[in-house]
């Protein structure tokens, strides 16, 4: 009951917010962070080389996304691209005993994503409801490389090199909170001064399938994870 009252109060306050003339908006920049754990060990039935060396936990993934809004009507349709970085480190294994070496080895990943994005901000603009659900889908290309204890990219016994790229795709579902709701005057000044129309805090659930579209000869860098961050629409 309290929740309903709270939401009602927000809607009442929100719908009473004064409107002002905004500058044109056609781009959006997102900075977001979240946990990441590649699914490399799924390639094996009875081995877990990634977990053995890097551990079973997640590491921080940081991403920067740029979107260009191509349609602005009942919501916003955008095309976007993002770049990120994450790395996971662990101890090397002694060849003689398979015990942990004092040397470290690191797996570096630079995910490149190309998105089609839809943001349903009609309610935010029409009724000042500060919540904007969105969905993203697109292609991924993850560039990765591995470094050994002295920072070199290693080669395996068959001569293959520890760096490459893996294709995939993704689907994200998210919800953004329009920060302008808290202080419309500040938001207006932000627009007038630097041209930022809206500022969002957002969270998204990202499902990535990155394994060269099911190739059995590729790393499986897929993951299902949450990311959260801040977005500026300008």
């Amino acid at each position: 009951m309290r929740v309903v009252r709270f939401i009602t109060a927000i809607l009442v306050v929100a719908t009473a917010l004064p409107a002002f003339a905004e500058s044109d908006r056609d781009m959006l920049l997102e900075i977001k962070f979240g946990p990441y754990h590649p699914n490399i060990d799924s390639e094996f039935a009875n081995a877990t080389p990634y977990a053995d060396m890097m551990g079973g936990g997640s590491v921080l993934m940081s991403q920067l996304e740029y979107e260009y809004e191509v349609f602005n009507g009942l919501g916003v349709l955008s095309i976007g691209a993002s770049i990120g970085y994450s790395q996971d480190s662990g101890h090397q294994k002694l060849k003689s005993t398979m015990q942990d070496s004092k040397d470290s080895t690191t797996f570096h990943i630079v995910p490149l994503k190309f998105d089609l994005v839809y943001r349903f901000d009609y309610l935010a603009y029409r009724y000042n409801v500060p919540l904007v659900p969105f969905v993203k889908t697109g292609f991924d290309y993850y560039i990765w490389w591995i470094t050994n204890g002295v920072g070199d990219v290693p080669k395996s016994a068959d001569g293959s090199t520890g760096r490459g790229g893996t294709f995939g795709g993704h689907l994200s579902l998210g919800l953004a909170f329009l920060m302008d709701f808290f202080s419309p005057s500040t938001a207006q000044n932000f627009d007038v001064d630097v041209g930022v129309n809206n500022t969002y805090l957002f969270a998204e659930y990202v499902m990535s399938w990155v394994n060269d579209f099911g190739s059995s000869n590729s790393f499986d860098l897929s993951s299902k994870t949450f990311m959260a961050g801040i977005a500026f629409e300008f």
């Binding site: 294994k93 002694l94 060849k95 003689s96 040397d103 050994n148 290693p154 395996s156 016994a157």
Partner: peptide, 12 residues
Amino acid sequence: IEAYDFFEYYKD
């Protein structure tokens, strides 16, 4: 001492 890095460990 000779040790596997991640790529070698994964492959070999």
